[in-house]
């Protein structure tokens, strides 16, 4: 038992963190929120750092690594509120095509994914909206236990405004046609189930990062905002609220990392582990948004101030791929057996 990332893994994370700080600062997130601009510079750099192809096989230009490597970086993309489909494209698409046995499709898309030239939209059952469908180069859609692949031009997209302006949600209507079906049967079902786990876990990791960002913003603000002649961060009522948020994150984080390991190893309890990760991360991040908003006071309730950019992403992601109630109900079925 050694619950610790390797030095290589943390160095990879540090490099990503630094890159995101440079190319995905609050001004970029704001532009994405206000104009739907995404974060193309950061997206390009993710590819340059080898992150986009991290989970792709080496034969396809990837690094052949696993979720244990990617999870720390996904956490950073949450911290930066990166407005790009990194979970769908990097964490899910490659492994899904590979596990479906869609060799030809994988060979066609892997270089573009690894090179940062392709964005993937993901339409799994239970997720009514596809994020970034209009900008996607490839849509991977689940229907009746089958996996289909299509380009957005073959679908009718209806925009659905999200609380987070940077999230471009669409209802996707499409018809099966020649060549859309990628996989069916048991193999597809298994691969799709794993895709759902990857998407859920990737979202959980982003929530941890978003929660950390909200707490960090609130801590910095509480150090400089003065009332009654001292920084508000000196008041216990403020301190303790922020500590509770910080502590909830600290306790949720290992559950997320454990689930990454279970996914890579095909652990028989991986479903349980992913549900626990998402439940913990969703609740912790939501608490962080509440505490951060309260400690900011009215300034946090404006769109001029940056907090809302991170807070709204956390709200959106805390419900995406199942909220904490949904995942606790799944856990209940597994551990209570009633």
């Amino acid at each position: 038992m050694r619950f610790r990332f390797t030095e290589d893994q943390t160095l990879f994370r540090d490099a990503a963190r630094e890159m995101l700080a440079r190319h995905c600062g609050p001004e970029v997130v704001r532009a994405a929120y206000e104009q739907g601009a995404g974060a193309p510079d950061a997206w390009r750099h993710l590819a340059e750092q080898g992150i986009s192809g991290m989970l792709l096989p080496e034969a396809q230009g990837g690094l052949g690594l696993g979720m244990c490597e990617l999870i720390l970086i996904l956490e950073e993309t949450g911290f930066a509120a990166l407005s790009e489909p990194v979970v769908e494209t990097v964490a899910v698409a490659g492994p899904l095509l590979e596990e479906c046995g869609a060799t030809a499709l994988l060979a066609r898309w892997a270089p573009a994914i690894a090179g940062g030239r392709a964005r993937v939209g993901l339409g799994l059952d239970g997720q009514p909206y596809v994020e970034g469908a209009d900008r996607a180069d490839l849509l991977l859609m689940e229907r009746a236990g089958e996996l289909h692949a299509l380009t957005p031009e073959r679908a009718l997209l209806t925009a659905q405004a999200s609380v987070d302006g940077a999230r471009r949600l669409f209802t996707v209507q499409w018809a099966e046609g020649t060549g859309t079906r990628v996989a069916q049967g048991e193999m597809a079902a298994r691969a799709l189930a794993r895709a759902r786990l990857r998407a859920t876990l990737g979202t959980a990791a982003q929530l941890i990062g978003l929660g950390a960002r909200c707490v960090e913003l609130a801590v910095e603000y509480a150090k400089v905002r003065t009332q009654f002649g001292r920084p508000i961060g000196a008041f216990q009522a403020v301190q303790h609220k922020l500590v509770d948020a910080f502590a909830a994150l600290a306790m949720a984080r290992p559950a997320v990392y454990r689930a990454a390991w279970s996914l890579d190893r095909g652990d028989p309890e991986v479903d349980l582990h992913v549900s626990m990760a998402k439940a913990q991360a969703s609740d912790a991040a939501t608490l962080c948004t509440r505490s951060a908003l309260q400690c900011h006071g009215a300034i946090g309730y404006t769109t001029e101030y940056d907090l809302h950019l991170y807070m709204k992403r956390a709200w959106a992601l805390s419900r995406a791929f199942g909220d904490s109630d949904h995942h606790r109900a799944r856990i209940a079925r597994q551990i209570l057996g009633d």
Partner: peptide
């Protein structure tokens, strides 16, 4: 039922957190 699940999850989270702390100490 949900409170029972939360209690189980808390204990599990504390266990994971502790293994992480131990690895860090080691």
């Amino acid at each position: 039922r949900d409170r029972v699940v939360r209690a189980w999850m808390d204990a599990e989270a504390y266990r994971l957190h502790t293994f992480q702390t131990v690895a860090s100490l080691q």
